[in-house]
């Protein structure tokens, strides 16, 4: 019975990873940038919501209404002032600048918030631990279920947005070939700005839910980046529905690993990631990495 519970927990944890990975996958698909500060944006957003919840009586859910647009704005600014210039300088420069930004955000947050481990759970009351009893000893937490549902809605919504709206089509065209897209009148600069805004805002959303369901410190960002990246790679880079599958595989691997050994949570996750990577490379070589353009650029 314990394994059924763990399986369920793993799947629900996978929902969180999918939520977290969604922005990373999206940004890579559109701009070919892996944002090494992705996890730190999640933590930045969690810290901002914490600040609001802690100093006022405002619920974290309502604080999101203020923080998410702010994160989107930060994403837009990131693109305008940093990534655009980085991209012009070559493929490697965005990695260097976003890594530098990660160091700045982490340590800046530490300077302001200190090393304390924090959580938003006390600010959302019973919702943090209430659950449905499925059978005698199998439970599903409200919060975990909400996160999972949100991940499905967000990933699905993003896919519908990319497929059926004109802005979505513009984004896909730019992802495919930004020069040609510009020729037919698409403002690639604006598209990249919007893509970065969406990516950073979803990272921020994930960060707040991390803070509700668990604890965080200013230095939690890199770990979240690694989890997000693992979910993306396991599911197939650039594939939004694959990201959900990847998140679930990672979440289940981690919860099963933790069941075997207290240290097993992280180790099993990393090992599964490397095994999937090795398997895919062995089976398909370099050409099989397809997913990137896959869902974003190709007509579904």
């Amino acid at each position: 019975m314990i394994w059924v519970t763990q399986l369920l927990n793993g799947v629900l944890l996978g929902g969180y990873y999918a939520l977290l990975a969604c922005g990373l996958s999206f940004m890579f698909g559109v701009m070919r940038i892996i944002n090494l500060a992705h996890g730190d944006f999640a933590i930045l957003s969690a810290c901002l919501v914490f600040l609001i919840a802690n100093t006022t009586d405002i619920s974290p859910f309502i604080a999101l209404v203020v923080v998410l647009p702010l994160m989107a704005l930060i994403g837009w600014g990131l693109q305008r002032w940093m990534l655009e210039r980085s991209l012009r300088a070559g493929m490697l420069v965005p990695l260097l600048t976003t890594f530098g930004l990660a160091i700045v955000i982490e340590n800046g947050l530490f300077e302001y918030f200190g090393a304390d481990t924090r959580s938003l759970a006390p600010y959302i009351g019973d919702f943090a631990y209430d659950s449905w009893a499925i059978t005698g000893n199998v439970y599903i937490g409200y919060l975990a279920a909400l996160i999972f549902a949100l991940a499905v809605v967000l990933l699905g919504g993003l896919k519908l947005f990319l497929t059926y709206t004109s802005l979505g089509r513009a984004i896909r065209a730019t992802a495919e070939d930004s020069d040609t897209a510009a020729l037919v009148g698409i403002n690639a600069r604006a598209v990249y700005g919007i893509a970065a805004a969406i990516a950073v805002a979803t990272a921020g959303l994930a960060g707040v839910f991390l803070a509700m369901r668990a604890v965080f410190t200013p230095y939690s960002g890199p770990e979240q980046l690694i989890f997000a990246f693992e979910a993306v790679v396991i599911g197939g880079i650039g594939s939004l529905s694959g990201t959900l599958v990847g998140g679930i595989v990672l979440g289940v691997a981690q919860t099963f690993g933790a069941q075997i050994n207290p240290q097993g949570f992280l180790i099993t996750g990393h090992v599964v990631f490397l095994v999937v990577l090795a398997g895919r490379l062995a089976l398909t070589g370099l050409r099989g990495r397809g997913g990137i353009q896959g869902l974003l650029a190709r007509q579904p």
């Binding site: 940093m82 210039r85 980085s86 300088a89 420069v93 260097l96 600048t97 890594f99 530098g100 930004l101 990660a102 160091i103 700045v104 340590n107």
Partner: peptide, 11 residues
């Protein structure tokens, strides 16, 4: 400072 300098130099 190190992180910021890395960004400035890279850009």
């Amino acid at each position: 400072g190190l992180g910021a300098a890395a960004i400035v130099f890279a850009l």
